[in-house]
C-alpha cells in the first residue's frame, strides 16, 4: 500500500499506526525529507516544532492525523479514505475551524465512520 513512500511519525502516534505503515511497505525518515508527516497530537513538542518551522511558515508542509492510517487499515485500502479530511493543523487553527464546521473527522470516537463509503466516483 505504501511502497516507495516515506513517512515521519511524531512520538504521539501510537505504535500500531507506525507498524501498519512499515508492514505495508512504507519507509521511515526524518520530517525534513518525508513524503508524509503523521502526528496524533498538535501539542506534542515534536509536532509543535514542525508548526514553527520555516517550511510550515512558507506553506510547504501539511501534517496529517495518524488516524488516517487506522481508517485505511480498517477498510484495507487507501482509496476509500479521504486523506484531505485528516489534516492536523496547529491548535489555534483547529479552534477556528471547529467554531465554523464542528469537529474534525479524526475527533470521532469510532474512526471507522470516517471511511468514505461512496467510493463510486472514480471521475478523478
Amino acid at each position: 500500500m505504501f511502497t516507495n513512500r516515506t513517512a515521519w511519525f511524531s512520538n504521539s502516534v501510537r505504535r500500531g499506526s507506525r507498524w501498519f505503515w512499515v508492514s505495508e511497505g512504507g519507509g521511515i525518515t526524518s520530517w525534513e525529507t518525508a513524503d508524509y508527516l503523521f502526528s496524533e497530537d498538535a501539542t506534542c513538542p515534536d509536532t509543535e516544532r514542525i508548526f514553527e518551522s520555516v517550511d510550515y511558515a512558507e506553506n510547504r508542509l501539511t501534517v496529517f492525523h495518524s488516524f488516517y492510517l487506522a481508517a485505511c487499515e480498517k477498510c484495507h485500502s487507501v482509496k476509500s479514505v479521504c486523506i484531505g479530511h485528516y489534516v492536523l493543523p496547529p491548535v489555534s487553527v483547529q479552534e477556528v475551524v471547529k467554531a465554523v464546521v464542528g469537529r474534525f473527522i479524526w475527533e470521532q470516537e469510532d474512526n471507522a465512520k470516517a471511511v468514505d463509503t461512496e467510493d463510486s466516483d472514480d471521475r478523478l
Binding site: 513524503d35 508527516l37 510547504r60 501539511t62 496529517f64 487507501v78 484531505g84 479530511h85 478523478l124
Partner: peptide, 12 residues
C-alpha cells in the same frame, strides 16, 4: 481537497 487520493498528494 476532499477528493484527493493518497497517491495524488503528499504532506508537501
Amino acid at each position: 481537497g476532499c477528493g484527493l487520493r493518497f497517491s495524488e498528494v503528499t504532506s508537501r
